[in-house]
Design a binder for these strands. Sequence first.
DNA 1: GCGACAG
DNA 2: ATCTTGTCGC
Length: 284
Amino acid sequence: MAAPPERRCWEREQARLKAGVVEQDTEEWQKDPNFTGLERVGGVDLSYIKGDDTSACASLVVLSYPALQVLYEDCRMVAVTAPYVAGFLAFREVPFLVEAVQRLQQEEPKLRPQVLLVDGNGLLHHRGFGVACHLGVLTDLPCIGVAKNLLQVDGLARDELHREQIRSLQRSGDTFPLTGTSGRVLGMGACWVLDLSFLNAQVLRSYNNSSKPLYISVGHRVSLDTAVRLVRSCCRYRVPEPIRQADIRSREYIRKQLCAPLEVRPARPESSKKEAELEDESDA
DNA sequence: GCGACAG
DNA sequence: ATCTTGTCGC
């Protein structure tokens, strides 16, 4: 069965944009062990409404660095058109993220982030060009892909080897390379914040069941090593703060969108209902 | 053929 | 992505 023509078109577009991807540190602060000179880190995310796959809230936040305080927030309802297809996430979400970045640069140019953390993958992708690369090339900003689940590509899978790598890093607090069958390191698995809440109850099982790793990969204009160091320095909880704030705020925005119409809805016409009931009774 | 599949 | 409460512990 041939791939849908729409997907063919998407692949051509990715191939075209891929020429612009940069996998190396291009900024001075990236080369500094303490990221001296880095002052603003951005995070982006889309949240969806449960039964509605076309309405979403796109959010962009900018946090100060290293304090990680929110300097800027932009949440906006958008009409999503492209369906979600694993491997083609960028075509669904990137247009709205680019708009948000352009809006920021127009309205608050001084708050332009120096790097963006993106929910999803960069080079860790079927065609080596995930949403983080896509957004990076279109905005010309350094981008880092941070995924919460492993995209199974180039032989990578949630197999016994992968589970063993997770177990080993949870003891050392370190990272492990995501090496594809091709031999290429596509990204790094990492887990810096362990969930020890149930340590007392099941000490033994905790090592096998505690929090899942993050999957970090290069998006644009950043090296993998720098990407991993930066994400680590942004983690208060499992998910790095810029993405976490974008996620929290977009979900909250949607929650308020859903509640607002209920509050202004006029009271039910109780009178007519009672009259109808009375008529029924009188007829009976 | 069946299963897998970032958000 | 989203559906979902309480609960146990520091």
